Amino acid sequence: MKAIVRTDAAYPALLKETAKPPETLFVRGQSFYNQNPDAPIVAIVGTRRPTAYGREIAFTLARDLALRGAVIVSGLALGIDAAAHRGALEGGGVTWAVLGSGIENIQPTYNRKLAEDILKGNGSIISEYPGTTAAAAWTFPARNRIIAGLSHAVIIVEAAMRSGSLITARLALEANREVGAVPGEVSSVQSIGTHALLREGAALIRDAHDVLELVGREVPQEEKVDKFDGIAQNILHSLNAPKTINEIAFTLKYDIGFLQEHLTSLEMEGAVENRGGVFYKTI
């Protein structure tokens, strides 16, 4: 374990830019000091009581970002946080867990094994509190400012209206960081907070590509196309030059009505644009 003060060269520059950076950070694990300076740092946070959908999205998003070199930050809480940490480990990447308790007091106790796995997987455990300091109601909102401050972007996956994750999103905005939210089921109470963020202008996040674009990282052209199903990929590959719907249908031997349905979906995804009856690929 090491202690880093604000005047140390190892103190994170992003965190130092925030309004109230902690005077001291206690850190276990080497990746905090040795990370690639060009790696995007992405926080993924959300409810402690996720749906199966939310847990899967958080895991997959973190895994796919880790596979592309991103550092995943979260709070080691039950639910979305734990899923994000596990996803990052599955992707062979680095993940940082920011505690609301002392650096030697892993809370919740249920996630102590996960904390061990993070350290074994070249991740780091971080806290502004020394030793075995107990967590309190106020330490978790304070912890959230560190999560936001360490990151280039904060992504919310499922959050009720009165959620600590929304505090993290607000703190990220105050620190001039990007904020994204994953849409959920319209009838789910766990999606009320994320949908409110989307209405207020948060970036809509569907996959790792959306996150990388949000933080200004270039996504390889083939990866942009590969995320679509086979029919959509065929259409996109056919648009190596702008074409009318009749020209696409002739090239691919698709029925016009069938093709129109898929072109409409691709337009909604932002992958295709119809300009006066001529279709252009936009990714």
Results as ranks from 00 to 15, higher is better:
10 A>S: 14
10 A>L: 06
14 L>H: 07
15 L>R: 03
20 K>R: 14
21 P>C: 12
27 V>F: 01
34 N>P: 03
38 D>M: 12
45 V>G: 09
57 I>N: 09
62 A>M: 13
63 R>I: 03
73 V>P: 02
74 S>D: 05
80 I>R: 09
82 A>Q: 11
82 A>F: 02
88 A>I: 04
92 G>I: 01
92 G>N: 05
99 L>H: 11
104 E>R: 14
107 Q>C: 14
108 P>F: 11
116 E>F: 06
119 L>N: 07
126 I>Q: 00
132 T>P: 06
135 A>Q: 11
139 T>M: 05
139 T>L: 08
141 P>V: 13
142 A>L: 14
144 N>E: 03
147 I>G: 01
148 A>R: 05
148 A>G: 13
165 S>Q: 02
165 S>T: 08
176 N>V: 02
180 G>F: 03
181 A>K: 05
182 V>S: 07
182 V>W: 04
186 V>N: 10
194 T>F: 07
196 A>E: 10
202 A>T: 12
203 A>T: 15
217 R>T: 11
220 P>Q: 10
223 E>A: 15
223 E>S: 13
225 V>A: 01
229 D>R: 04
230 G>W: 10
230 G>N: 14
234 N>E: 15
238 S>Y: 02
240 N>V: 03
244 T>R: 11
245 I>N: 02
246 N>I: 11
252 L>F: 05
255 D>C: 01
256 I>D: 09
265 S>H: 06
266 L>A: 00
270 G>R: 05
271 A>H: 00
272 V>P: 02
275 R>K: 15
277 G>K: 04
